[in-house]
């Protein structure tokens, strides 16, 4: 996170701190390369003649991203660092808690995979329950009850109020 602003950090330490942002520069460069490769594979068809072809804008974007990657890398190496975003419930003094983040991401992923089979109600109730527990709720029954109420309420709200039918999945015929 933000570098301690007391004494200028020792060379190695400064480099270590900057390193995570260098990975962002690398990511930008990778995206630029992906765009460039993708653009190179666009077939030149007859329609491309006359009007501006579909390659022009992607080429500009890839170039721009590449330049940003280089500029960011230089800026980071020269000691620039970003400010992480603050907020009401954010405590930047503690380190990122990765199990929570990946747990939540995993839950969403599993939800996406199982949604059609389980249906919206079961899937999203479990998503809510799992997320609440990962985020530190210790009221195991309450959280589940809230999740189920939220899911069932949304399902019927969408069906009756908006006329949108979310997939019922396993509960088809019951709901």
């Amino acid at each position: 996170m933000s570098a301690p602003s007391t004494a200028p950090a020792a060379g190695l330490r400064a480099r270590l701190q900057g390193r995570s942002e260098l990975s962002v520069a690398a990511l930008l460069a990778v995206i630029a390369i992906v765009i460039a490769v993708d653009t190179a594979n666009i077939r030149h068809t007859a329609i491309n003649a006359g009007v501006m072809g579909p390659q022009v804008v992607p080429t500009v974007i890839a170039t721009g991203l590449g330049l940003c990657a280089i500029a960011l890398a230089i800026s980071v190496l020269r000691g620039g660092h970003a400010e992480a975003e603050d907020g009401e419930d954010i405590d930047l003094t503690q380190k990122a808690h990765w199990p929570t983040v990946f747990g939540l991401g995993g839950l969403i992923f599993v939800f996406a995979l199982t949604m059609d089979f389980l249906g919206f109600v079961i899937g999203s109730a479990l998503l809510f329950y799992g997320s609440a527990l990962l985020l530190g709720s210790r009221r195991f029954i309450w959280a589940l009850v809230i999740g189920i109420l939220l899911a069932v309420g949304t399902f019927y709200g969408f069906a009756l109020g908006l006329g949108i039918y979310l997939p019922a999945g396993l509960l088809t015929g019951i709901l």
């Binding site: 969403i108 996406a112 919206f120 527990l133 985020l135 959280a143 939220l150 979310l166």
Partner: peptide, 13 residues
């Protein structure tokens, strides 16, 4: 926990 679980719930929805 309920607040942010709820945000994820409605975001996926």
């Amino acid at each position: 926990p309920y607040l942010y679980a709820g945000i994820l719930f409605f975001a996926t929805l």
